[in-house]
Design a protein around this nucleic acid. Structure first.
Length: 491
RNA sequence: CGGGAGGUAGUUCAGCCCGGUAGAAUACCUGGUUUGGGACCAGGGGGUCGCAGGUUCGAAUCCUGUCCUCCCGACCA
């Protein structure tokens, strides 16, 4: 016995915390609302980051880096933007400490007050558009397709590991275009990149949609989103892409000369995903034994555990494992050989299940004699004895199979939790008893949306793209509606 | 930010009500036996009791303040 995990049924929140902490992804820190991402969790994030970074580059984007600090005056230039972020900003007011003459230790030096206070970026639109003003003169400078990997700070009242922390890591893309159409295409394209990443790498199915006006990004004309379904029936926004119109161009006076030599405001997008995706990954797939990580982004795809009596057997196994790991590595498979003699096999089995390693190979003297190895897959917990000959090919194929299985399982779960509702009683009952997305008609007003939220805590997660049009009556007001939207309680 | 719970060894926790110089399990170290689902025996090391004040001859224990975490709520791309 050692690392007990709270079951999902007993306490879903605690289960999630247990997995993150005991699975070695992150720790709490001495700073309120901030976490330490541990090496195993960071390796997972690095794999996600690398895959996304490649996708951004493949779609023509380049990376750059803008300052952590934003002059306070910048934030207030776009009215909706300041409204949305002002309440959760960390502010730098001084630039020096000194020893208190009264002996109270280090104190802020009141004489070192900043002329203009600096905001720790909650997002970088303002500092970036202030810069773009200098970079864009002509239509020949467009489109400008830039991404940055950075940390941001949002002073949240209530935090949860990965899902909502005061400081988090993310990427933010900021692009500038000559036309409205081109900017919209960009925002939609990047949403599709996110959706592809979530589905193909994280094995998390997502719904592509647009946000309602009240859920829209502060300063955007349209916010596109991908929404995922967690195992407790709550929705989680996994990524957003915004069509910013000319709002920031106007706020920061960014104009370009078109082909007719007329000055026009630039059209903009921004888009981001964060370490919150790690939380989504945990809650979408894992079980009561621990994490279940999809092979394409798992830090270790395969772990090999030797089982032996005495040094002689150990040597024989070591030799065989060396051959196997060489084969696996040649196929680009990330493999760990755990021959630590301090822990026994049973302990290791439990440990790597907790850590969600997709495939485990156990190999002992008996196996060597018979030329076989025990292969255990984390997702289904199936165990098979497989011939050592051709094992690398078998494992490579198994990893693919696990990736597909995890996606299909999550998709079946998600699809089963999209339920249509046509009456208010049914809507409320579904939310309480079943959870998930509820597809219902909505009259399109913010007042109705707000009233539903107040009564049920459910919000409109999105209006799905390519939604089928359908005449109906609003679930709440009874007013006419042309399509169903997806409601859910959300993280 | 409001309500509740908590912070004592690396970890999980007992001790606190009723003040008297800190304990268990596990982990760790040494030696040995072990190794196919979280091993066993023997010996050993490890804690300014979150932090800062106060009361007291004496504080993990009582009082005040403060920091951090969890749960619920308010708030929140």
């Amino acid at each position: 016995m050692s690392k007990e995990i709270t079951s999902r049924a007993a306490d879903y929140s605690q289960w999630y915390n247990d997995l993150v902490l005991k699975g070695g992804l992150a720790d709490y820190s001495a700073v309120r609302g901030c976490m330490v991402i541990k090496p195993y969790g960071f390796a997972l994030w690095e794999n996600m980051r690398d895959a996304l970074d490649k996708m951004f580059k493949d779609t023509g984007h380049v990376n750059a880096y803008f300052p952590l600090f934003i002059p306070k005056s910048f934030l207030s230039k776009e009215a909706a933007h300041v409204e949305g972020f002002a309440k959760e900003c960390a502010v730098v007011t001084h630039y020096r400490l000194k020893n208190d003459p009264g002996g109270a230790g280090l104190v802020v030096d009141p004489e070192a007050k900043l002329e203009e206070e600096l905001i720790v970026r909650p997002t970088s639109e303002t500092i970036i558009w202030n810069t773009y003003k200098d970079w864009i003169q002509s239509h020949r400078d467009l489109p400008l397709l830039i991404n940055q990997w950075a940390n941001v700070v949002r002073w949240e009242m209530r935090t949860r590991l990965f899902l909502r922390t005061a400081e988090f890591l993310w990427q933010e893309g900021h692009t500038a275009h000559a036309t409205r159409e081109e900017a919209i295409i960009e925002a939609e394209k990047m949403l599709e990149v996110y959706a592809t990443f979530a589905e193909e790498f994280m094995a998390v199915p997502v719904i592509r949609g647009v946000k309602t006006a009240s859920e829209r990004f502060a300063g955007a004309e349209e916010t596109y989103c991908i929404e995922a379904m967690m195992q407790d029936g709550k929705a989680l926004q996994a990524g957003t892409s915004h069509f910013l119109g000319q709002n920031f161009a106007k706020a920061f006076d960014v104009k370009f000369s078109n082909r007719e030599n007329q000055l026009e405001y630039v059209w903009a997008t921004s888009w981001g995903v964060s370490t919150r995706l790690v939380g989504a990954l945990v809650m979408a797939h894992s079980d009561d034994s621990g994490l279940i990580l999809p092979p394409r982004i798992a830090p270790w795809q395969v772990v090999i555990v030797p089982i032996y009596k005495g040094e002689d057997q150990k040597k024989l196994i070591d030799d065989k494992v060396k051959a196997i790991t060489d084969e696996l590595k040649a196929l680009g498979i990330r493999v760990k050989y755990d021959d630590n003699d301090n822990a026994r096999p049973g302990w290791k089995f439990a440990e790597y299940e907790l850590k969600g390693v997709p495939v485990r190979l156990a190999i002992g003297a008996r196996d060597l004699e018979q030329g076989v190895v025990e292969v255990a897959r984390r997702d289904t917990k199936e165990k098979n004895v497989v011939k050592l000959e051709g094992i690398s090919g078998y494992v490579a194929q198994l990893l693919e199979e696990i990736q597909t299985y995890m996606y299909n399982k999550a998709k079946a779960f998600r699809d089963e939790r999209i339920t249509p509702a046509d009456h208010w009683d049914e809507f409320v009952r579904l939310l309480d008893e079943k959870g998930g997305f509820i597809a219902a008609h909505w009259d399109g007003t913010a007042a109705t949306e707000e009233a539903i939220k107040e009564k049920t805590k459910a919000t409109i997660r999105c209006i799905p793209l390519q939604n089928t049009k359908e005449e109906g009556k609003c679930i709440f007001s009874g007013a006419p509606s042309t399509q169903r939207v997806l409601f859910a309680r959300a993280y």
